[in-house]
Design a protein around this nucleic acid. Sequence first.
DNA 1: CTGTTAGCGCCTTCAA
DNA 2: TTGAAGGCGCTAACAG
Lengths: 340, 340
Amino acid sequence: MDDVARAAGVSTATVSRALRGMTSVSAATRERIEAVARQLGYVASPSAASLASGRTRTIGLLTPWVDRWFYAHAIDGAERALREVGFDALLYTFDLSRDQSRPRVDPSVLRRRVDGILVVGMPLSKEEVTSLEALDLPLAFIGTGRDDHVTVRLDDDAAGRCATEHLLGLGHRRIGHITGPAGVDHSWSPPVARHAAWRVALEDACVAAEPGWAVDGAFDVNGGREAAHRLLDTHPEITALFAASDEMAMGAVLAARERGLDVPGQLSVIGIDGHDLGELVGLTTVAQDPARQGAEAARLLLADIALWATPGAERVSGALQVLHATHLVTRSSTASPRKT
Amino acid sequence: MDDVARAAGVSTATVSRALRGMTSVSAATRERIEAVARQLGYVASPSAASLASGRTRTIGLLTPWVDRWFYAHAIDGAERALREVGFDALLYTFDLSRDQSRPRVDPSVLRRRVDGILVVGMPLSKEEVTSLEALDLPLAFIGTGRDDHVTVRLDDDAAGRCATEHLLGLGHRRIGHITGPAGVDHSWSPPVARHAAWRVALEDACVAAEPGWAVDGAFDVNGGREAAHRLLDTHPEITALFAASDEMAMGAVLAARERGLDVPGQLSVIGIDGHDLGELVGLTTVAQDPARQGAEAARLLLADIALWATPGAERVSGALQVLHATHLVTRSSTASPRKT
DNA sequence: CTGTTAGCGCCTTCAA
DNA sequence: TTGAAGGCGCTAACAG
């Protein structure tokens, strides 16, 4: 930076201001400095900038997995939105499968390392959220989050109703549900909301759902397959299945095939997601766009960070909830129940 | 840090040494310092440490996508391997779809920000690789890379032969191939290697492959589907298809369905990957483990970084190539050709 | 094994 | 609009 200042005939302070686009630099000076910097190939040291300013221009992406459909797309969307404005994305995965009783995320590693934290679709316990809050950093959630935090998610209630009502509209009445693990705090979990929406939609249609019609499918293909088998073993009267995710729905289709059941002739299956590979099994689904959710959450988080940095400003509302709409994609896994 | 030093009755230098696990600290002093630090909730500032030491304990993960099967798994594996030793993973995606003529990766953003760069399965041009090398940082490649760099990839030659020979062994002779875009530098591209392996395997079996038997499938489901259609339109004599990736193979299965062809009765299909959802269509495949490749590449990169940091040491060989083995997973998409 | 002493490279008040 | 100067929090020589 000294070299640049010397070559441009100004002080390092002016170089700093010019290169950061601050307004209090004359156009002529700025241009000269930028030209010199470019010519010298000068790139500012992020560590030095962070140390001096206290800001890192980095966001922590907290997630249990990067290799699952929703997570991968959300992370991709968030990272691109961050990079657009020159922010870096620091990836923090941790093992959800470990013992649930003790916290699995140690927020202290994020200390002084990021300007904000983006939590990607992760069922955190109250204690874990509290420990994140204790960092006193802007926080945003994608896919799942409590009412008192900035959260971008799909409208789980509408999505669950949409799926269930699609099946009801086809004439199904005995509709099973494959749900996922509720997570630690039930109140803000997508599977719980979708499960509730299923129940309500059935009630609205005057269908009494038996408790056994809902089974846990662990949110993956195999879990969905096993859940479907369990469900059809105990409740052969079921004519349609609503799975809380496409992967579980695909598992259900596999299970149907293994049982020699025709889909959709003898069993209709619908999922939620709009998974890229749903077409392989002709899966009807309620589609969402996780990359867009990731990008929007990133932008909200950046706005929050900007507010924190502004001395006078204070957030008007502490808890912005953004619900993304979904849309039904009808393919060949759902049809009217066969007359018996 | 001052507080910790004062409370422990030592200097900040000793605190620094103790907390970084350096050997030249007595056990008693170390324990005292660690206790005090824990009690005070002290966490070192990474920016300050980087500024003073020149090391960031951060790796840049350079990748065109995080939302594709191979990439997501490789990134996941790499990130976990890095976190195990206290390194951070900084995610850098960039758009591969943009104009190929100008560089799409600007290495200057990595300047002084990372200790090493992990390039995840990315077909970079010579110029782009050169600009990365110009950063003078340890570099490692996953999935694709030149001979003169540390590279972890699968044995594309063996995998391509394995797939082709599986089909040959079943009795197929007219075997088509769905390949992917070669990338900018043909010499080190997986699709090129798999394509060559297919040709060689056919030659070894005394089958003369027609040029039209190989079609580009763009490495995704739709590309694979369209490629299969083109191939079967022009070469209806084909009885089996080897696709260079599972997603393209799944697309081929879809295409077969659309044409009313029975798989494997009238058309056998095999892919490469071991994609989680291959089971949906009963896809026979040559399986790899990208997460393990990611983890190994991360560890090799860390070793390289350690060497760079050691004054006396110099790398013995500048170009370590690690080929990961694959294994055939036989499912229901391949069978002997139907006698006609 | 431990303390002292310079910086690392930038940002940011304050003054001009 | 610009310059001077102190300090952000830590590391790494060098002594002791």
